[in-house]
Simulated assay, not measured.
Amino acid sequence: MMQPLGVILAGGQATRMGGGDKGLLTLGGQTLLQHVIDRLEPQVADLAINANGDPARFAPFGLPVLADSVDGFAGPLAGVLAGLDWAAAQGADAIVTAAADTPFFPPDLVPRLLLAAEQAGSEIALSATPDPERGLSRHPTFGLWPVALREDLRAALTGGLRKVVLWTDAHGAATALFPVDGFDPFFNVNTPEDLDRATALLGAAT
């Protein structure tokens, strides 16, 4: 497989942060989105941002901004589809997605997703971490998605499907399990308290 393209999912409504773009919040002197770009860019062949509304607010990042093609707030799968359409136009085989509000995700995200898919004989792979209570905590916004399934996904979204794992389970998605060292690397910023915690974690890591 060719090196996947990267798509940062920044289309969330951020209701628990009072609205707006969570990715544009500042953490340690730079935006959450810049932290995500810095982690994902070295792992992919090219990079884009999925977001709706005026793309000019992301102009400082110098990346393509992909709007959802599905009407209404259709959730992360709509962002995946926008990314797959962009990748298809570039002749790419697959994309890897990451959430714009998750600044500490693993720096080996892409190779581990590719390996999990290869070992399972699947075209899709999702990230997960161990969970003491549930056994496994899945992080479906961090996944490997094949361009070959974009029309299938488009049909599912048009039919009203919104829950990521319902679609991925139907296609036998593989699971890439990532270790938890002190805190879940897929910890994301949903509330002002989360941003305070992220600031503390960033300080501890530097």
Results as ranks from 00 to 15, higher is better:
Val80Gly: 02
Asn190Pro: 00
Gly160Phe: 01
Arg134Ser: 14
Leu136Asn: 04
Arg162Lys: 12
Ala117Ser: 09
Asp131Glu: 09
Pro76Ser: 13
Arg154Gly: 03
Val164Gly: 04
Trp86His: 06
Phe73Thr: 13
Ala198Thr: 00
Ala87Asp: 00
Leu115Glu: 15
Asp152Ala: 14
Asn190Thr: 14
Leu149Ile: 04
Gly182Val: 02
Asp101His: 10
Ala117Tyr: 01
Leu81Asn: 00
Asp194Val: 00
Leu195Gln: 05
Pro179Phe: 10
Gly79Ile: 03
Thr102Glu: 11
Phe187Trp: 01
Ile95Val: 12
Ala174Gly: 02
Ala117Leu: 03
Val96Glu: 07
Pro140Gly: 10
Thr199Glu: 15
Phe183Trp: 13
Ala117Ile: 06
Pro140Lys: 02
Ala200Cys: 11
Trp145Leu: 11
Asn188Leu: 12
Phe183Met: 10
Asp184Ala: 05
Asn190Ser: 15
Arg154Tyr: 06
Ser127Ile: 09
Gly79His: 07
Arg162Trp: 01
Asn188Ser: 15
Ala200Gly: 11
Ser122Asn: 00
Trp167Arg: 05
Gly135Val: 06
Thr175Asp: 11
Val165Leu: 15
Val165Thr: 15
Ala88Leu: 11
Ala128Asp: 09
Ala155Leu: 12
Ala173Met: 09
Asn188Arg: 14
Asn188Asp: 15
Glu151Met: 11
Ala116Glu: 03
Gly143Gln: 12
Thr158Ile: 12
Pro107Tyr: 14
Asp93Cys: 08
Asn190Gln: 15
Ala155Val: 12
Thr199Pro: 04
Arg138Asn: 12
Leu177Cys: 05
Thr191Phe: 00
Arg154Gln: 12
Leu144Gln: 00
Ser122Gly: 10
Trp86Cys: 09
Gly160Ala: 03
Thr199Met: 11
Glu151Gly: 11
Thr158Arg: 13
Val80Trp: 04
Ala120Ile: 05
Leu166Met: 12
Val164Ala: 13
Ala78Leu: 06
Phe187Arg: 01
Val80Gln: 07
Phe142Ile: 05
